[in-house]
Design a protein around this nucleic acid. Structure first.
Lengths: 140, 140
DNA sequence: ATACCTGCAAAGTCTTTGCCTTAGG
DNA sequence: CCTAAGGCAAAGACTTTGCAGGTAT
């Protein structure tokens, strides 16, 4: 968990208090390389007995506002959340049948385009969300 | 409306009956180059008085199953729908403040990667969803 | 004629908020 | 102390479904 203290530091700078719930949310997100839903987080053994789902929700909201986690759409009804860590994969391969989500290890080819869009459109704080969908081997 | 008859033909082959609601849903999607939510479709003048939201919902469901429209996540709570027309843009630039969605005209740089993923993972029927997020000029 | 389509209304799923209590700094 | 955080419960937002009656083929 080399990163936890760094992230807690970020949180502190962002004005968040160091509560048990915050620490547990962060460690749980850190343990899971795939993004998690609010429900998955709230029901995780780390958090289940520790705090209410509303608390997790409000934490995720603040963490998103501060740029510490990112909220993803990923084509499902529920939102997914993942830590914004430099070097962590941001693109995903998703099975349209079983819903399995796995990060993609290949280098992402859209950063160049992202820069071009930033300059040509004037949009600020650009980032992207890229997901591939298909039927995985188990499902086909 | 050069495409409408083609799409209706596709629908016929897929076993859908040619109802007023179906025709209006298709023409409305054809008129809008940006994806639309279920709510936006159901409340569009073309459809508002013509049929119920549940009907639009069920049509979109069938059309998605048949591969005639695609359901998109796009980071919002509501799902977005767009016609699957060869040559139509599939990537988007979205303002995180006002929610404006615009198709991107630049050639998409991920098709090559998509093929590589298909061969290296064995996933079938691969497609992707790519969206850029940022703050548009009006909002910044 | 018959299988599919529709409207209406109700139920489901996931998110969001209000209010009052608890606790971090 | 003072203000942010948390628990509980209720309200919202959007989607999905059951059923009875209508309609395309």
């Amino acid at each position: 968990m080399q990163h936890l203290s760094n992230i807690l530091e970020q949180c502190k700078e962002a004005g968040l208090r160091r509560t048990k719930a915050l620490c547990s949310v962060l460690t749980t997100l850190l343990e899971n390389t795939s993004p998690m839903t609010l429900a998955a987080l709230a029901e995780h053994p780390n958090l289940k007995a520790l705090c209410d789902r509303a608390t997790v929700f409000r934490l995720l909201q603040k963490l998103s506002d501060k740029g510490i986690v990112r909220r993803l759409g990923l084509h499902e009804r529920a939102a997914y959340f993942t830590l914004l860590i430099p070097g962590r994969h941001q693109d995903f391969l998703i099975c349209t049948d079983c819903g399995d989500i796995r990060p993609i290890t290949a280098p992402c080819p859209v950063h160049q385009l992202e820069k071009e869009i930033a300059t040509s459109t004037g949009y600020k704080n650009l980032y992207h969300e890229l997901a591939f969908f298909g039927t995985c081997n188990d499902c086909s």
